[in-house]
Each structure stands twice: as C-alpha cells, then as structure tokens.
C-alpha cells in the first residue's frame, strides 16, 4: 500500500504517523509539504496531528486553505482513502471534506490521556479488521475535539453509518455530541478521528490496538 503524509507548519504528529505507516505497510510514506500543488499517486493520504498554524483563527482553518488541499479534495472525490487524525480531523472538517465541526473541549482543558473506543461500524475500509462493537484503547491529546453537527446533519450521518468510532465506557474526554470520536464522509473513503491510532502500534507503545485501523486499510489495498 502506497501512502503519503501532508505536512503543515506546526504539524507535530507527522513523524509518529510516518513510523506507524512504515511499520505496518513495509514501505516508506511520501512526505508532501503543504505548498505543493499535487499529491503523489498513492492509496492513502494522511493528514496528521499537530497545531498547524498555531491553531490561529480556528483549529485547522488556515491549513484547510493550503494549496495542497485542492488536490486532496480532488483525490478524495476520486475515491482515494484519506485519513485525518486530531488536527487532521479538524482540517478535513474545515475543508468541507467531512461534516460538522470540532469545538473547544467541554471541560476547556487540553486532554492528554487514554480513552476507550467502540467500533460501531466495521463495514468501512478503515474498520474492517475490528469486530462490530469492539472496544479498544486509544490515546487522545487535544484541546479542540468536541465534535458538533446540527441536528439534521447528525441524523444524516447516524442513519448513514458514518459514525465509525464512539468513545466508550464513559470516557468521552471532550463533550462530543453522541460520543462521536470518528466519522467518515458519505462515500466512506474519508475518515476523521480525534484519537491517535498511530500511537498504539507496537509493544513499546504499550499496546497494538491502533494497528487494526491501518491493517483494515492494508486489507482494502490488497
């Protein structure tokens, strides 16, 4: 599986994502600077976590207007898999590739801890290696992860099975509506999530729970 990671000024989880992708796919991801105009021909484009542009204006707002985003939107429209983690999720919502918005955490504090995730839809290319209802561990580290969508949008994404991951066991760390932790677009080829699966992929991380997400994508590319 060929992969690329977009890097913005202020991205800081890009190297973690690089490491996870190389470990799991066996191939080195390509790094793409935000000012470039075209993405390489890959199976998966990742928008990594961090604080692009220092979260100025709104988290992800400036990065979502970067030159490379035009081609990201085109690639997403053509069916390429796109994964946004943390700031990447914020960027994808700001760019209109995913519905809703990510607001300041309800508790107002930055949260850096482990949460429990429930895979509520395992019929997506990002979740096929999980069992339906599987509860797994995943780290979070964010200040603006409080997912919000208006009533009509929320009803639509829930009915469409676009909610893929929810915070489980009362571990919702940010006040997200319906405990939403990760959603896809209506076609199912773009996923955004606040937790960091790339940080739980080898024994040194203390667990392997995050691998299943990447292995699902490998499965799709195979």
């Amino acid at each position: 599986m060929k992969t690329a990671v977009i890097v913005f000024p202020g991205s800081n989880r890009d190297r973690d994502m690089f490491h996870a992708l190389e470990l799991i796919t066996g191939a080195r991801p390509q790094s793409v600077w935000h000012t470039e105009s075209t993405l390489p021909d890959v199976d998966l484009v990742v928008v990594p976590g961090g604080f692009s542009y220092g979260d100025y204006l709104r988290s992800g707002a400036i990065a979502a207007r970067s030159p490379i985003l035009n081609d990201l939107v085109a690639k997403a429209d053509s069916g390429v898999s796109v994964l946004g983690v943390c700031n990447g999720f914020q960027i994808l919502t700001e760019a209109g590739l995913l519905p809703g918005a990510l607001m300041r955490n309800a508790g107002l504090t930055f949260v850096c801890k482990e949460v429990m995730m429930e895979t509520v839809n395992n019929a997506t290319r990002f979740s096929s290696k999980f069992t339906e209802g599987q509860v797994w561990r995943c780290p979070v580290a964010h200040h603006d992860g409080n997912y919000f969508a208006d009533e009509a949008t929320l009803a639509r994404i829930e009915d469409n099975g676009q909610v893929v991951f929810r915070y489980a066991d009362g571990t919702n760390p940010n006040g997200s509506i319906n405990d939403i932790a990760g959603i896809t677009n209506d076609k199912g080829n773009v996923l955004g999530m606040m937790p960091h699966p790339e940080n739980l992929v080898e024994p040194l991380n203390g667990g392997l729970d995050g691998r299943l997400l990447f292995e699902s994508l490998l499965n799709k590319a195979a």
């Binding site: 709104r58 707002a61 207007r65 919502t93 918005a101 919000f148 969508a149």
Partner: peptide, 9 residues
C-alpha cells in the same frame, strides 16, 4: 464564507 467564519457553527 471562505475563511473568517465557519458557517457550520
């Protein structure tokens, strides 16, 4: 519409 406001919220 394009930048200063996020019209979702």
């Amino acid at each position: 519409e394009k930048l200063l406001a996020n019209t979702v919220i």
